[in-house]
Write a protein that binds this DNA or RNA. Structure first.
Length: 197
DNA sequence: ACATGGATTCGCT
DNA sequence: GCGAATCCATGTT
């Protein structure tokens, strides 16, 4: 297992979104290791992408998107859930990849504990399907904003050497995005049952 | 300051 | 497959 370095992330967002599929996201908590295979991603590409948080330019919230690739962009959505993004492309180019679903690999008990703690989410179904639940399962919060995947000791990516077959489709939940609504920038591992839809 | 609205989820059909 | 709840951080759209 090798850990992708800065160069892996400092490529166009679409390439990173595809490249992340089949890789393992590892989270080290006080209780142990949680890990999952990335099976669903979405790319958000630049200020002209009307679905992207960068569409209004640089703000306090999205500033990390304008930094170098490989850092985490985490934000609160609907007042309750966090979403996990990985910044792509080079400094000053605001691109990011939303992680939408993981296939559990290790730490199933910890995942269930985290979901139970959250209360709203039942622990017995669809463990890491959907970006909000995935963050609950991994016990991620605002303190991970700006975390560096290339050097962090509590969250990182490992390359399992897999090159899965990939399908592209329109992104989820962005009906407001006008001409960008139909862009096929959502990527899934072909035939995998752990994707969110 | 504060109204706004959302890169969702769940539960019901 | 669809509709509605939910609620706080964000940007002032």
């Amino acid at each position: 297992m090798t850990r992708p370095g800065r160069d892996f992330f400092e490529k166009p967002g679409i390439e990173v979104a595809r490249g992340l599929l089949g890789k393992i996201l590892v989270r080290k908590t006080g209780g142990g290791i949680i890990s999952g295979k990335i099976v669903e991603t979405e790319a958000y590409i630049g200020e002209e992408d009307l679905a992207s948080h960068a569409r209004f330019g640089k703000t306090a919230r999205n500033r990390v998107m304008y930094g170098p690739g490989g850092f985490l962009y985490i934000y609160l959505i609907y007042g309750i859930y966090f979403n996990l993004n990985i910044v792509a492309a080079q400094e000053s180019v605001p691109e990011a990849v939303l992680i939408r679903a993981l296939q559990p690999v290790a730490g199933l008990e910890l995942i269930k504990e985290n979901l139970e703690k959250f209360g709203r989410v039942r622990a017995d179904r669809n463990l890491m399907k959907g970006p909000g639940k995935l963050c609950v399962a991994l016990d991620l919060d605002k303190s991970f904003y700006g975390e560096d995947l290339a050097s962090s000791k509590r969250i990182w990516i490992e390359d399992a050497g897999e090159a899965p077959r990939i399908e592209a489709s329109p992104r989820i939940g962005i009906d407001y995005a006008g001409a960008f609504r139909e862009k096929p920038w959502r990527f899934t591992v072909s035939g995998n049952s752990f994707i969110s839809k």
